[in-house]
Design a protein around this nucleic acid. Structure first.
Lengths: 155, 155
DNA sequence: CCAAATAAGTGGAATAATCAACTATTCCAT
DNA sequence: ATGGAATAGTTGATTATTCCACTTATTTGG
């Protein structure tokens, strides 16, 4: 059986569809809850989920444009512009106009942003532990592979 | 191997952690993109993702309190209060104070909300098709089971 | 090489989400 | 019965996001 009963019920156009049989409903719910939990941990240290994602991306990229960050974080460019400048005001990142292309703004982690990274990772670690404590490697692998595949499908 | 290399790299406190090895990063990204795609389809028919989730839940429950909907959709109660009354203003739902408990507000789908459901499901169907066209039953099943398990772990 | 097209980002008004403080109702333990 | 705790929701101030029109910079086709 390839695309049988499960697939049909997961399809919103099917009469048997319901939130319970919908992968996207479950996904949205999980991510929503994850964000709630993260926010609860991050608020006390003056951080939040969008900022954390930016910091994480900049940790990987050292120097990225506003568009690149927006794209990686899947946040609209104008939202990211404002977020980046808020974060610059908080000394978490620094910005500079590119020397080779006057349109682009290069963003990089500032000292304070690098410090925040460690703090936030320890908080994120708590939630990760709780979420994945009874899930083994093979399942995490499968899960990420599928997530990635679905992402690519709708990209 | 139960909790080996994959698990370690997925843990934000591990030195080898990165967005690429993080299940939550992939998840957030997928859901973010899904919401972007849905919004693009829903906007032209005067709908959006939060409204759609409420409508879907009410289709399942016939009559639900604001807290119940907020809980199922993982949205804060005060946000849901405002959303519900916006939706009532748009004649998508109706509200009434419970006859047995004066504190609770019972929400149900209105005529217009039921009509919207069909329209929105056909839009959601397009994205579902695109997202899952090459993913078979067994994988959808696994995926939903894991999603549910992680959700329960952090609930 | 220049005009048109494209790309990157910005700014402001409108909309929505969040926080915290508050009201009203019900529950429950004396 | 009744006063305190808990539950359900509301409201207003604050903050964040979104839309969209616009500017400036680069690229490209003729």
């Amino acid at each position: 059986m390839k695309r049988g009963k499960i697939w049909r019920q997961a399809n919103p156009t099917d009469p048997a569809f319901s939130p319970e049989t919908s992968p996207f409903f479950h996904l949205s719910r999980l991510v929503g809850l994850y964000h709630l939990r993260m926010d609860a941990h991050l608020k006390p240290i003056g951080m939040d989920v969008p900022r954390w994602r930016v910091i994480n991306i900049l940790h990987e990229h050292e120097c990225a444009t506003i568009s690149t960050i927006a794209d990686l974080a899947v946040i609209r460019v104008s939202t990211m512009t404002k977020l980046v400048y808020r974060m610059e005001g908080e000394r978490l990142v620094s910005t500079a106009v590119s020397s080779t292309d006057g349109r682009v703004t290069e963003v990089r982690l500032a000292e304070k942003g690098r410090n925040a990274l460690d703090q936030v990772r320890s908080k994120a670690g708590l939630i990760f532990e709780r979420a994945f404590h009874d899930i083994e490697d093979a399942d995490i692998q499968t899960f990420m592979t599928l997530t990635r595949k679905i992402y690519d499908n709708i990209y």
